[in-house]
Design a protein around this nucleic acid. Structure first.
Length: 213
DNA sequence: GAATAGATTGTCT
DNA sequence: GACAATCTATTCT
């Protein structure tokens, strides 16, 4: 265990240029990176192990489909490296990272992380025991564990207190995205990326749906 | 282990 | 009024 793993917030921070690239590239490369949130309650951090790319205005599954630009989706149209946070199903927050160019409404959903620091605080927020994969194996769970809500909407992820650091991943696989069956052919696109054999990945697809990257 | 139902509210039609 | 980039508990096999 090196110092970076013990104190993940000390790592090398990802720069704006990392996010200012095509959304599929960023989604793929975000697997293995370290997400850190330093809040008043304490610091929590984890390795990203599962992501999904959303690519409006053409992608029917994206909230920015058709160029829909409202107070809710505004952040997706803004500069890369900022947070797009939304509330869904009446009770869960989801955290995304805006990518690409200004005016291009693309973002990457963070679906799962492997906890690195602040496990006790995560467990407290999640109201469960710390040594369980259910702590952070889903997009709503990640937000609850890290204390991410609408208060973080639009925040610059190149600055404190919510930011990403360098990290590395094992083998990365891809599959169709989760929970967007209403979007027709767009649901088939292999725009979900995850680390192979990681226990914190929210759902392991059938072998026939898998692709190596 | 898989399938299903229920919770609960912001957003848009 | 309908629906949603989800989670949890429950009820099956």
């Amino acid at each position: 265990m090196n110092r970076r793993n013990l104190e993940p917030w000390r790592g090398s921070r990802l720069r704006r240029s990392f996010y200012a690239r095509p959304v599929l590239t960023v989604a793929r490369e975000l697997v293995g990176k370290v997400l850190v949130h330093r809040s008043a309650e304490g610091t929590t951090a984890g390795r990203i192990v599962e992501t999904e790319a959303y690519r409006g205005p053409h992608d029917r599954a994206a909230h920015s489909f058709g160029g829909r630009r409202t107070p809710r989706t505004e952040a997706m149209f803004g500069p890369p490296g900022h947070a797009y946070v939304f509330f869904v199903y009446g009770m869960h927050w989801n955290f995304n990272i805006v990518t690409g160019r200004v005016g291009e409404p693309h973002a990457v959903l963070i679906r799962a992380i492997e906890p690195l620091a602040g496990l006790e605080l995560m467990a407290e927020r999640r109201r469960m025991q710390p040594a369980r994969v259910e702590l952070t194996n889903g997009p709503g769970k990640v937000c609850q564990a890290l204390g991410i809500t609408g208060a973080q909407y639009g925040r610059d992820l190149c600055k404190d207190p919510l930011f990403l650091n360098e990290g590395s991943a094992g083998r990365v696989m891809r599959s169709r995205r989760v929970g967007i069956d209403y979007s027709g052919v767009w649901a088939e696109r292999p725009w979900r990326f995850f680390e192979a054999d990681n226990a914190y990945v929210s759902r392991v697809p059938r072998r026939s749906m898998l692709n190596a990257t």
